[in-house]
Design a protein around this nucleic acid. Structure first.
Length: 306
DNA sequence: GGGTTTTGACCCGAC
DNA sequence: TGTCGGGTCAAAACC
């Protein structure tokens, strides 16, 4: 990703994955991969630049927040997700192995990711833990705190926090006992149809079988998202997964406590941004010799033999 | 009977 | 030092 290296801010487009079977309405609207771009898994094909202002907004957003940063959303009333008594089903055992990674509950998502500095080590240094936050829109009537992301999670706790009447659920990765990844899921206080999942750490094991259809980049940290915003040392990166049906940019209301994130999402969803994005995408794609070769080969295969 | 969830209690850091 | 709140533990219940 040369463009990404050149610019502190880049935009990666996920154009390389097979289409996901299940339709996902209104996801990343305007960025449909109807050009038929299909290639190797998670191929990053194009990038474009973002204004410094946008980058600053992102940085400001992702370097603030409770528990270090990017952690806790503001919250308001939403129906408690705790089932009555001990009566329960198995829905809390999250997995998307059965091709459920984009279940109909998941309408769209916005993901924010950054590297957090935490866990001071004995030698005085700090261990860097990747913290990723994912907003997922679900059916407001759905009281389960399930965020399908391709991994198996075991719930180990639930707590009602002070700033949000909705309980926060704590999950550990259940696929590998030694996996340090934890996930916190809490319904947005402002919009009960939005759940916010915070992933801490990185998986130290391959994705569970069946989850491989998800983008590997989204798999990192547990998110299976069509659109992600990442912050790292080289600058913010917006990743759009165009391989989902109806892929495109869609704004997820992230709550009043995240006005910057909302603003960024709106800007990303704007027609001007999309137009520039498409242009940049086309430029990058046509300038990619490997891509054009692969495209030509694919077209030739489709043509009848002369 | 084993694995998982629920939920009250406990721990610990921040203020 | 005491209080508060988030995160985790662990026993009990559930499937």
């Amino acid at each position: 990703m040369d463009t990404a290296r050149r610019s502190p801010v880049c935009l990666d487009l996920m154009v390389g994955l097979p289409m996901v079977r299940e339709p996902s309405p209104a996801r990343c609207a305007g960025m449909r991969a109807d050009a038929g771009i299909v290639g190797s898994a998670c191929g990053r094909a194009a990038s474009t630049t973002m204004t410094n202002g946008e980058a600053k907004i992102l940085e400001a957003k992702f370097t603030e927040g409770p528990e270090g940063e990017g952690e806790q959303p503001a919250s308001t009333a939403a129906s408690p997700t705790s089932p009555v008594g001990k009566k329960r089903g198995r829905e809390s055992m999250e997995t998307s192995d059965s091709g459920d990674a984009n279940s109909d509950k998941k309408i769209n998502m916005v993901e924010a990711e950054h590297v957090d500095v935490k866990s001071p080590l004995s030698n005085g240094t700090c261990r860097r833990i990747k913290v990723k936050r994912v907003c997922t829109r679900i059916d407001p009537s759905d009281t389960s705190l399930v965020v399908k992301d391709g991994y198996q999670w075991r719930k180990y706790g639930q707590k009602v926090t002070r700033d949000n009447p909705s309980p926060r659920a704590y999950f550990r990765c259940a696929f590998a006992p030694s996996c340090p990844v934890k996930k916190k899921v809490q319904r947005s206080a402002e919009d009960s149809s939005v759940v916010e999942a915070t992933y801490e750490g990185e998986h130290n094991h391959p994705r569970p079988t069946g989850a491989s259809e998800l983008p590997s980049c989204a798999a990192q940290g547990g998110g299976s998202v069509p659109c992600s915003i990442s912050i790292n040392s080289s600058g913010p990166t917006i990743t759009l997964d165009l391989t989902k049906n109806g892929g495109g940019v869609q704004v997820v209301e992230a709550g009043e406590a995240q006005p910057d994130l909302k603003k960024v999402c709106r800007e990303v969803a704007s027609p001007e941004f999309r137009a520039a994005l498409v242009e940049q995408m086309a430029r990058a794609l046509t300038g990619d010799r490997k891509f054009t070769d692969a495209l030509a080969a694919a077209i030739l295969r489709k043509l009848p033999d002369y």
